[in-house]
Design a protein around this nucleic acid. Structure first.
Lengths: 143, 143
DNA sequence: CTATATAATTGTATTATACAACTGTATAGA
DNA sequence: TCTATACAGTTGTATAATACAATTATATAG
């Protein structure tokens, strides 16, 4: 494997992460979902429901982190909790209609923004980048 | 442009960023440079020198952030400051020998880790991914 | 000279995370 | 049937990386 290409990937990722963190975390936009909330809602939308525990496992974060984030989303009316039968410790989380709308709205905004960044790319490049990013994401998840 | 591919890129980036932040920021490894330090050293290594101001501009971060980060690197002996002629407010930062070594050691560790994630990829895929990431990084920097 | 601009630092707040302690509930073993 | 242990979730506290505002020392323009 070409070590130069790997080094480039490593360096680009480092830059990208720092850049995107700063842009999306500290410069508050006020009315859009933060990354955490966005991913939580998207995951719950995909699987239909979740618990604090399953979300913590899915995202490999501490359940205290998830607990606070879902509490915030519940407070904003984006998530609702439903008791679990036969286990009064647990509950499941579901999207509310508002949550579904917010998710859609945010997905659209974000996708638009990414689309702008990809202006001037050929269809083939976008296709390839999408495929390779996905593949890389899988590697990261596994290892 | 295929909207599905763009959406995939958007989603994968969101996941990747969150994942890599958590892995590289909060789970302390102790003896490796954090992302900030790594990028600062790399930039200074490439350009030979820098000031707090030029670094803040380069990374689009507040100079207070840079000031603290460079102070930490100076304290660890990775950076040294040299006075600027005719301006006693300012100084330039240069890598020390230790800084150069640490940078190299870290680059190697990181590149190895990325290499592991790319195991099983064809040379062509790695090549393409490298190129497209770089291209994407440029777009992010510009817009 | 004096007013203003600039380089860097320091103070304070926020966000996303981790780890540890805690509460309440479930379950397995004596 | 108790009791010990495990488990789901929450709350307390700490840390890292950032921003913005105030401050200090120096430079420069009028």
């Amino acid at each position: 494997m070409d070590p130069h290409a790997v080094e480039t990937i490593e360096m680009e990722l480092a830059h990208l992460i720092r850049r995107l963190i700063a842009e999306t975390t500290y410069r508050k936009s006020g009315d859009s979902l933060d990354r955490a909330a966005y991913l939580l809602l998207d995951h719950i939308a995909g699987s239909g429901w979740a618990s604090v525990k399953t979300l913590a496992e899915e995202f490999r974060l501490d359940s205290s982190t998830i607990s606070r984030q879902t509490a915030a989303l519940e407070k904003k009316g984006h998530l609702a909790r439903r008791p679990v039968e036969n286990d009064r410790r647990a509950y499941t989380l579901e999207l509310t209609e508002l949550g579904r709308l917010e998710l859609e709205r945010n997905k659209q905004m974000r996708t638009e923004r990414v689309g702008e960044l990809l202006e001037g790319w050929t269809a083939q490049e976008v296709e390839q980048f999408s495929r390779l990013l996905q593949k890389f994401g899988e590697s990261v998840s596994e290892g």
